[in-house]
Amino acid sequence: MSQPRPPPTSSGNPSAPPQKEPSSSHATGLRYPSNGKTIYHRHLSRSRTAELSQASFAYLFSEMVTYAQRRVTGIQDLEKRLNTQGHPLGLKLLDLLLIREPPRSQSRPLNIITLLHFIKINLWQHLFGRQADRLEKSSDPDAPDEYMIIDNEPLVNAYISVPKEMSQLNCAAFVAGIIEGVCDGAVFPARVTAHSVGSKEEGEMWPGKTVFLVKFQPEVLEREALIGGKG
């Protein structure tokens, strides 16, 4: 993110009008950055150690939650807004993470399991620097379309304490939105919601434990049955 700024053009003649760039009169109206580098000149791959400050992320995220909280009607609405903020990220990350794979193993996820593994391993590794803790299929026979991605302590909730009267809220709805974006992008339309389960019996060890419930649309299961575990 630390692109060196080119030195400001020397203003030898202060009385001259500032807009003298010939490029600004280009027919398309497109203005190139003064160093001539566009987004196409930057590399897609990033070194393994590239990390961002968690403090600044926490600050930014708290502002995002505050922003989403304006004029909401309830907790559901707030979670929906956080979800919407994350959704486009998922759509874009899907392609980015795939192209960062070595060329031999670049493949589109064709079934639910490969997709969820991609989320658990690649997406989590990219966003949080570690894999998600567990991946489970719903044991309820009435809900074969439900899968769970479990994170014992979500990074986004690290500095968030939810007030008592909003105990239903889990701000990891933002991450659920990212997951939903990945699923939708890969043509596995799904609804993803975040639920806190920290207060249950095994929750003593991980009070912030969050389950991301992925509920796929019926057509996904239908296709899954048709192509039958290939890929």
Binding site: L44, D95, L96, I99
Partner: peptide, 17 residues
Amino acid sequence: VYENYVKAVMSPFYKAP
């Protein structure tokens, strides 16, 4: 082309897809 497409998508002003 895919590489450049992903770069285009990375633009914060691009609404995928």
